[in-house]
């Protein structure tokens, strides 16, 4: 029963592992290449995720709700937008590294619009990425794409608040998690 539970919880990992097993039997060279390709991402993940989880938990424990609401909440206005862009732009790691932080910020009273801005900025307009882009595609290319992307992110953020409400965001498993670890 326990194994079934683990498989159910990790459907994707189970499916991908199965694909690898089949591939190792059918085309071992392709399977080997896939593992080699994945290694780069796994190393990147190991460098960033532990620190993301630690800092998320520390912020969760120490930063009061009011501070988050003031900085990133519904009433934070332009300041909230600027903060969100700054947080996303000066971040490290791939987009999934932003998930735990954004989830925590949402729980602590950040608005959906600002969370969308953080997620999108985290993904596309990170400072080291911009430097790389300017190097290979020119400053003008980078600059125009940056401006258009910022505009698109702001529009997306506002459209999202029309379609998605806070009640659409699951909090259930988070509560279970608190129970499991006896937090609060």
């Amino acid at each position: 029963m326990k194994i079934i539970g683990i498989i159910k919880k990790n459907k994707l990992l189970t499916a991908v592992s199965l694909a690898y097993v089949i591939l190792f039997i059918a085309m071992p060279d392709k399977a080997y290449l896939s593992v080699k390709n994945s290694m780069h991402y796994i190393i990147e993940m190991l460098q960033i995720m532990p620190v993301i989880f630690i800092i998320t938990s520390i912020i969760e424990a120490w930063v009061p709700k009011e501070v988050i609401m003031k900085g990133f909440g519904e009433k934070a206005g332009i300041k909230g937008i600027v903060f969100s862009f700054l947080l996303g732009s000066f971040s490290a790691g791939p987009i999934y590294a932003a998930f735990p932080i954004c989830k925590m910020l949402l729980k602590k009273g950040a608005s959906i619009a600002n969370v969308v801005i953080i997620l999108s900025a985290w993904a596309v307009i990170k400072v080291p990425m911009l430097a790389n882009e300017a190097k290979f595609l020119g400053v003008q290319f980078m600059g125009i794409r940056w401006i258009l992307t910022v505009i698109a992110i702001i529009i997306t953020a506002y459209l999202m608040t029309i379609f998605v409400k806070k009640k659409d965001i699951p909090v259930q498993d988070e509560r279970d998690l608190d129970k499991i670890i006896g937090f609060k």
Binding site: N10, N37, M49, F53, E60, A61, Y96, P100
Partner: peptide
Amino acid sequence: SMKMAKGMMKNMVGQIIGILLLIGL
């Protein structure tokens, strides 16, 4: 809060590794 970090990690790590192996494929 470290216990919480550990819980979050446990909750996400299977999914993340699945995703990264999928990217390799």
